[in-house]
Computed example of a mutant assay.
Amino acid sequence: MSQESLDDTIKFRAGPLKEAATELDSVHLGGINISELAREGLTQMLQRSMTDDDKIAIYERYSAGDLSEDAARVLLGDELDLLEEDIDAFREAATDDTSDYLV
């Protein structure tokens, strides 16, 4: 885990990426929203780079209140809702009376 904290702005050397984005902005009717593209791209790459173990750790941190829902939603996307539904279903099943199922 990186010990550096992130500022509100994430900076990196864009080089050809900036040139390509600037070129597309100039030829695209109405231009493009480069910031939005960067946010979407970073979100997709963050989600793509996560393992199942990472997802579990992120959900556990979110559940413990150590991670905001917004950040958890960026990392887990729709899986956040699915995890919460699964956990609720598991809790409900754990409290069901199973005495009718015993042989």
Rank of each mutant, 00 (worst) to 15 (best):
M1H: 15
S2E: 14
S2C: 08
Q3H: 14
E4I: 15
E4S: 14
E4Y: 14
S5D: 14
S5I: 14
D7G: 02
D8H: 14
T9P: 07
I10W: 10
K11V: 15
F12D: 01
R13K: 15
A14M: 11
A14D: 09
G15Q: 07
G15V: 04
G15F: 05
P16A: 04
K18E: 03
E19W: 02
A21F: 15
A21W: 13
T22W: 02
T22P: 00
T22C: 06
T22L: 05
D25G: 06
I32S: 09
I34F: 00
E36S: 01
L37S: 05
L37V: 00
A38T: 04
R39Y: 01
R39N: 03
E40N: 10
E40C: 09
E40V: 12
L42W: 05
L42A: 08
L46W: 11
Q47H: 07
R48F: 12
S49Q: 08
M50L: 15
T51M: 04
D53G: 06
D54Y: 04
K55H: 00
I56R: 14
I58E: 00
I58M: 02
E60H: 04
E60G: 05
Y62E: 08
S63F: 01
G65E: 04
G65C: 09
S68W: 08
S68P: 00
D70P: 05
D70M: 10
L75W: 05
L75R: 01
L76W: 11
D78M: 07
E79W: 06
E79V: 07
E79Y: 01
L82V: 04
L83H: 02
L83S: 07
E84P: 02
E84K: 06
E85V: 12
D86S: 12
I87M: 08
D88Q: 09
A89I: 06
F90C: 09
F90A: 13
E92G: 04
A93P: 03
D96S: 13
D97R: 10
D97A: 00
T98A: 15
S99M: 08
D100G: 10
Y101L: 15
